[in-house]
Design a binder for these strands. Sequence first.
DNA 1: CTGAAAGCGCTTACAG
DNA 2: CTGAAAGCGCTTACAG
Lengths: 344, 344
Amino acid sequence: MSSTRPERVTISDIARRLDISKASVSYALNGRPGVSAETRQRVLELADELSFHPSSAAVALAASRSGTIGIVIARDPKVITAEGFYMRTLFGVEQYLNEADGSLLLRLTGENGEDIDVYRRWARQRRVDGFILYDELDDDPRIPLLVSMGMPCVMVTSRDLDDHIGRLITPELETVTVLLDHLNAFGHRRIAHISGPMSYIHERVRADLLTREGRRRGMRMRHVEGSYGYESGAERTRHLLTLPARSRPTALIVGNDIMATAALRTAGELAIDVPGALSIIAWDDSVLCEVARPRLTAMDHGLMEKARLATDLLFRLIGGDTEPHRLSPVGTLLVRDSTGPASS
Amino acid sequence: MSSTRPERVTISDIARRLDISKASVSYALNGRPGVSAETRQRVLELADELSFHPSSAAVALAASRSGTIGIVIARDPKVITAEGFYMRTLFGVEQYLNEADGSLLLRLTGENGEDIDVYRRWARQRRVDGFILYDELDDDPRIPLLVSMGMPCVMVTSRDLDDHIGRLITPELETVTVLLDHLNAFGHRRIAHISGPMSYIHERVRADLLTREGRRRGMRMRHVEGSYGYESGAERTRHLLTLPARSRPTALIVGNDIMATAALRTAGELAIDVPGALSIIAWDDSVLCEVARPRLTAMDHGLMEKARLATDLLFRLIGGDTEPHRLSPVGTLLVRDSTGPASS
DNA sequence: CTGAAAGCGCTTACAG
DNA sequence: CTGAAAGCGCTTACAG
């Protein structure tokens, strides 16, 4: 490819040119004690001049840390590319990494459990220093696996469990409260929740809280499970909106932006006015929600900030911190045009 | 975090237990000649039993290849999270990587040129074996930088240049032909192109080809530059649709899905019927196009397949291949509801 | 504050 | 076919 020889600059080169030991160069470069201020200065200058960057492999091998974290996403490509959820999340992670000079090893697998092998391999290979985990499952197999290998990890989840992994916990009750209060103020009494797959802990937590808190407010709550996909959202909505008038919901809380968009379209096809005859809320905001007509009321969960917090927590754990749980901030309801007074 | 000691298994362990040399273990594991079939077999079995995975750092250091490729995306987070372009692309890369057992180091930077530092650092650190580059610029600074460091790279681009880096070239002429023929068949004579930033080579190539090929067909072509963002798409559309009737376009070719959605909305606001009075084509397909009403006619460029090809090409280059240019397949026009016969 | 040395876990000529 | 040995480029006790 290239005619120029890519001459590697190593700490040996720097040591030789400065006539000091490699150890001193290393100490100077890493800001460790053990060198005089003057020596440190000279090393830093020469390193800069030669635009020296340490071999990541050598550092990783010697110090047994790679400076990189891993994220493995096991989701249907179709949904994931449409949702924007993960892209925002990745951006948040990257913002942190850009400052901390860490890096991200990313793997997108299908949803057939191939992910677990990737975790095992990366951990064994010491390719990463730790993982951020999403989409917690019941008896999630990743947790015992990674714990047994001594791999630090942070689960971004809705459940607070004392299992000694890091957890960034989404305060779902607060979200549920915001949503229900919003609908309550509009006088809605019959509310349906179209969730994502109940195999995800966070969906179960949301469904449970929604049911409990809705009933506490005297609402009639109904829950149906969706898959996050467009078709599934459309189908569930059609089912709900063709129920007998007296049990038909006047408001829909929909698990993601795609299904919420589907719900909106389906209402349109059934000639049901939104928000006149039906209110719709999307659990996650995105361009889809902005661009829909009427624009969809949605929760902004501050995904980038959340991801940044998760990354920070993981780096602390890797650094030896022992306080692994943290609460992520409450989101904001973006009240747009798809919610209004109850009709019946 | 964990109470269990994560006992590393190394090739020394395997060598000791089998009473052979580390070299033999290495040869056996890597499928190299130099060991008897029987020894190889025993090594493989024991490795499997101990679920041995070589330290990636040690391999990288000794063999000076990391098995990972780098992608640095320098784009506005807002656009990137909405577009779905990159998420599809990443999925294509990952599909290849899942099979080739490679990995992806990903960095999302802003668009202020911070990316170049990341390229330099990763190359110097030998963190990656090569890069896939997107969004080629005029006199793109990444090319001389990476070439001078002997870093293999593949530019996914629209321009065929003989500069000895890998290039996966999109056949833009074919796309332009498909789009114009489609509009031509509907009798459109006045066509406007809302492009992305002209600083990108691919946008320039498209604008030039569109102008040339349109004129060759006797069409009146007009080009305006957008930013890929929603507002920009809306603003440009408003401008075009409020031109005097005789120069007002009857069809819009819009540089991405977001701006196309904006164009559709804006037409709606101006009470211009789509496709009755105006046809709209999106350059890139996405859920946004599917979900819009009317559904947007759009090009499906087979982004996943393209990304897979790019990754394959890069791996070949890393492996020493010397045929760095390749054509990516032509896309398909998804004819939906936003295009129809010209009105005037 | 500084240097000599061992070691991280592999790969790769080089001899047998 | 097999083994002993050097080396990849760092870090990190350990002595001075």
